[in-house]
Design a protein around this nucleic acid. Structure first.
Ligand SMILES: [Zn+2]
Ligand SMILES: [Zn+2]
Ligand SMILES: [Zn+2]
Ligand SMILES: [Zn+2]
Lengths: 141, 141
DNA sequence: TCCCAGCGTGAGAATGATTGTCAAAACCGA
DNA sequence: TCGGTTTTGACAATCATTCTCACGCTGGGA
């Protein structure tokens, strides 16, 4: 975490399992937990171990190609994301996600931190709500 | 989470254990995990069960007198906080915490959410860094 | 004051996500 | 193809959190 630009560790050797994970990841629009991810792969007929799912997702997080989010219960959820810094607007009901950017927020966090003498600043900003679709279906039900 | 202003459940009966927890909570400037909290109470000679620590902290969170924060490892940390909406600037090294407010951020999150048709919006914003003191001691070592 | 009904406690079991272990399988360059 | 290295996966181990449920305390009524 602290040694951001450190020398990247030797790239991971590509395998069938990693390919399956990457594929499913790219087809997912929402944040998914490792457990669910594993279940879906299995359901799709892929033969992948749970440990591998965790390992692969983790290395992708470190590589910056996947974002991780902690739900209220503390369970981690993953999603393929563009590599540049951004935040998320997540539907509490269906987990659909919109990537958003906010230069103003970036500036604000840095300013606040500096103001209090903090250095090596990072931040997390997540917005949760109910998407239009889910709101509609709830109302209709 | 969704039923914010719901009728508050019958207030909890005050006990020696809850008092001990409240006291320690008010003397803590930083976010502390339930496990650590329990250990400190024990170390201080208080006889309180772990389950009670969890239960009490949780009800305080629901009551809004305590804020909860999830670390990178997913472990929850608690801290007594003023009841009005605010965010935190937390030292990654000593967990010292500063409460901060940002009207601009509040407006931004609402605007972004509305823009995408999301309703019942909430958000989390946390800033992490190294406080001046910790930075100094690290440099000195 | 004595007794009873309920709520709060806490030790220990249960849960469930995540991580560790390690032998077998897959890779890849020579 | 061969051999050293990396990755995998079934399973065990961790560890925070929740669940269970018998027991203690409290407050009000008899
Ligand atoms: Zn939705
Ligand atoms: Zn940002
Ligand atoms: Zn510090
Ligand atoms: Zn806010």
């Amino acid at each position: 975490m602290t040694d951001r630009g450190a020398s990247a560790r030797p790239a991971r050797r590509p395998t069938r399992q990693q390919q399956a994970i990457t594929d499913l990841l790219e087809r997912s629009e929402e944040f998914v937990s490792a457990q669910t991810f594993h279940a879906r792969l299995r359901a799709a007929g892929e033969r992948v171990g749970l440990a591998t799912v965790y390992r692969t997702l983790q290395s992708m997080v470190e590589a910056g190609t996947v974002d991780v989010l902690r739900g209220d219960d503390g369970e981690a959820a993953y999603r393929a994301c563009s590599t540049d810094h951004h935040h998320h607007l997540v539907c509490r009901s269906c987990a659909k996600t919109v990537e958003v950017e906010g230069p103003a927020v970036e500036r604000w966090t840095d300013a606040v931190a500096a103001e209090h003498g903090f250095t090596q600043v990072t931040h997390t900003v997540e917005i949760f709500g109910t998407c239009a679709e889910c709101a509609a279906s709830t109302r209709t039900r």
